[in-house]
Amino acid sequence: MLNNLITVGALFAVFANASLIHNQPRDGVITLDLVLPTNEDLEKRQIGETDYFLKGTNWPKAVVQVGSNKDSVLLVVDTGSWLVQVPDISSNCSACLLPNGEVGLFNSNKSTTIERTGKPFKSKFDQNAYYYGEAVIDDIWLGSNFKIPKVLFNDVSDIGKGWPYGLLGLAKPPKGSENENVVLSAYKAGLISKPIASLHSRNSSGTSLQLFLGGYSKAQTIEPFSWHSIRDSNIHAYIDSFSINGKNIPVNSNATFDTGNSRIFVHKDVYSGILNALPDDPNNAKGSNKIDYSLIKDKTFTLTLFGKNYTIPLIAFIEPDCQDQHCGLMVFSTAAYNIGSALLRFLNLAIDYEVGNEKIGLAQWKASNTNNVVSF
């Protein structure tokens, strides 16, 4: 997040004696539908002193229920952080909204299954983006009859206004904090076949998303996953280059792969190369950070990662829900490479959390409205 799709929400740890009830995982895989909201005028983000609205500022999200009272909360799926944050009613977070516009908060005082540890949790990403709360243990419901009991998460009583969303951290946890990772915890509890999570887009626009624990959708994958070590580092990939309209733009650098970031951040020279390689646009001046959807809707570019080419729709560079003449570009110039959900929705991404042998998995994506779910 910030440097940083959900449903298995606010979870840090699932204890070894945990078990799912009613809906059992199929062949050791849990499948979760995610939400990539569009046209949300309430999606406001603050960076330093600058406030701005972008209708295409979207992050993969999902709704889960928490505690015996089954309070619904919305969480952002974030491969840029590993902690899981659940906004509590005591936070008075009026911007913690569910997809229907209602406020979604956890009333920890009404849950009869909660266990309080008394241990404070504090996570701060910048001055206006932070989570302060208490480590608690309670049940997470993935639907009305689908439960993971005794999950450890941050019951957030103070949430920053710069990032007013719950969070499902899917990054690799630091050494010694493995119990704060939901995938490892589900694996240790015997709920999934392997400690691997994968993210897939289903439709051609990349706005229908799914998260799989322990497996993946073969119907949405052209080829087997290619695996690369991320031991002792965050979730990242080595970018060799972008190739757009026959123009090769060298990168030769690692980049954080961060679904908690909706944009594509690259160095200045790469940013300029991408803009210059995009089709000439009579409707938008160079430097306007806008482009006509009709000029790119059927085009692709090549992204080379770890020496392997991946074909990505060119619409990865614009806001996910735009099909008009003035679509906002989602690529920006910055000091650090950070590839966000704008592009990652068109690349099958998997993370293997096996302790000491952590890896990132990449595979060519294809749109499919069917599922052939298999375990890793």
Rank of each mutant, 00 (worst) to 15 (best):
K161S: 11
I137R: 12
A135Q: 08
P149Q: 08
N145T: 14
G133K: 02
I140T: 11
G162F: 04
L142K: 02
I137T: 13
S157H: 07
D138I: 08
K147V: 15
I137A: 09
K150I: 06
D138P: 11
P149D: 08
S157I: 01
K147R: 14
K161G: 04
I140R: 05
S157A: 09
D158P: 01
K161D: 04
G133W: 01
G133T: 01
I140F: 14
D138G: 10
D139G: 13
I148H: 05
E134N: 07
L142G: 10
D155G: 01
V156P: 00
N154K: 06
A135R: 03
I159T: 09
K150W: 10
K147E: 12
G160T: 02
F153V: 01
W141M: 06
V136K: 03
S144Y: 12
D139C: 12
E134D: 11
D155N: 10
E134C: 02
D139S: 15
N145M: 14
V151E: 01
G143L: 08
V151C: 12
V136G: 07
D138Q: 07
G162A: 09
K147Q: 13
I140Q: 05
F153I: 01
L142T: 10
W141S: 07
F146T: 15
I140Y: 11
S157W: 00
G133F: 01
V136H: 06
F146W: 10
V151N: 08
I159L: 13
G143R: 03
D139E: 13
K150S: 15
V151W: 00
K150M: 14
N154V: 09
K161I: 04
S157K: 03
P149L: 09
F146G: 10
L142E: 02
I148P: 10
V156W: 00
P149G: 12
I148N: 05
I140K: 04
L142H: 06
A135D: 04
A135P: 00
